[in-house]
């Protein structure tokens, strides 16, 4: 009940702050409570093993699956190692490599989205950040295995979307998902970064907004006060929702699944 009251009062910018809270559970925290096993696998077989995006096989309840997601830490050291969840092209290419492997062995894929955006660095540009994201969007739209997406924290633009093309899109109650950061948008359209709260409101970036816009399928409730207060409860809620989605998607013949996934994104922003 208290949760509901605070949720109503929270502004979009409050949610942005919560979504970025370093104490919030990140991929490995979710897996700690939601998976009985996680075996990380490394590298894109081209250039490197990106640490901004990690992937591996996991057992969630009774489901064997591939998990991939942005990597953030709780401390500065951990975050430096994880590049603050900002993936390089190598990370997206690793994700595609392992997703292809999951497809080969008919394993469902669960992605965890939590990034400020794809890494905006010169080396990332040199190795084709744009191409890697573009390829990933095309790749996941054609992939012949179920894909469940969970937006757990910051859904930051193209770097988030690159691993968010799936059959079911879940979003935590206090997560945000946006085409641009409120600060970035305010800087351009308000010519004042301090107007970020206005921009956050205008952009419609909360789970409730996205549900209304038809961009996500389901809001996963967070424990009282937010996921940062109780990692375990948050992880178990995610586990429950993910398992239900996997069970539902596994029943659908794979060709129908891929057609439905196309239709899902095809209809976004469609008003005819």
């Amino acid at each position: 009940m208290a949760t509901k009251k605070t949720a109503v009062k929270m502004t979009a910018m409050d949610k942005v702050k919560l979504a970025r809270d370093p104490k919030r559970p990140h991929l490995l925290d979710f897996l700690k409570y939601a998976a009985s096993d996680f075996e990380e696998l490394h590298g894109d077989r081209l250039v490197s093993d990106d640490r901004g995006l990690i992937a591996g096989f996991a057992t969630i309840g009774t489901a064997k699956c591939l998990v991939l997601g942005h990597h953030k830490g709780a401390t500065v050291e951990e975050n430096l190692e994880a590049n603050f969840g900002m993936a390089n092209p190598d990370g997206y290419r690793k994700a595609m490599r392992l997703a292809k492997l999951a497809e080969k062995f008919h394993l469902p894929i669960v992605t965890f989205v939590d990034t400020p955006g794809a890494y905006p660095g010169d080396t990332a540009e040199a190795r084709g950040q744009a191409e890697a994201i573009a390829k990933s969007l095309e790749f996941f739209s054609l992939l012949k295995t179920p894909v469940v997406v969970v937006v757990t924290g910051e859904g930051g633009s193209g770097g988030a979307l690159a691993i968010a093309v799936g059959d079911r899109i879940l979003m935590l109650e206090n997560a945000v998902y946006s085409v641009i950061s409120p600060e970035g948008c305010a800087g351009i359209l308000w010519r004042d970064g301090a107007k970020a709260p206005e921009a956050a409101e205008a952009l419609r970036i909360t789970a409730r907004d996205l549900k209304n816009l038809g961009v996500i399928d389901e809001i996963v409730p967070e424990p009282e006060g937010g996921a940062q207060k109780n990692h375990k409860a948050a992880a178990l809620a995610v586990k429950k929702a993910v398992l239900a989605a996997i069970r539902e998607l596994e029943k659908i013949p794979v060709d129908k699944l891929v057609s439905a996934r196309y239709a899902k994104f095809r209809a976004m922003g469609n008003f005819y």
Partner: peptide, 18 residues
């Protein structure tokens, strides 16, 4: 992307790529 159309603009990246 056209930020005036928010998340639906972002989704056009997925839609066109698909």
């Amino acid at each position: 992307a056209r930020m005036h159309e928010g998340i639906l603009s972002l989704m056009q990246m997925a839609k066109t790529s698909a």
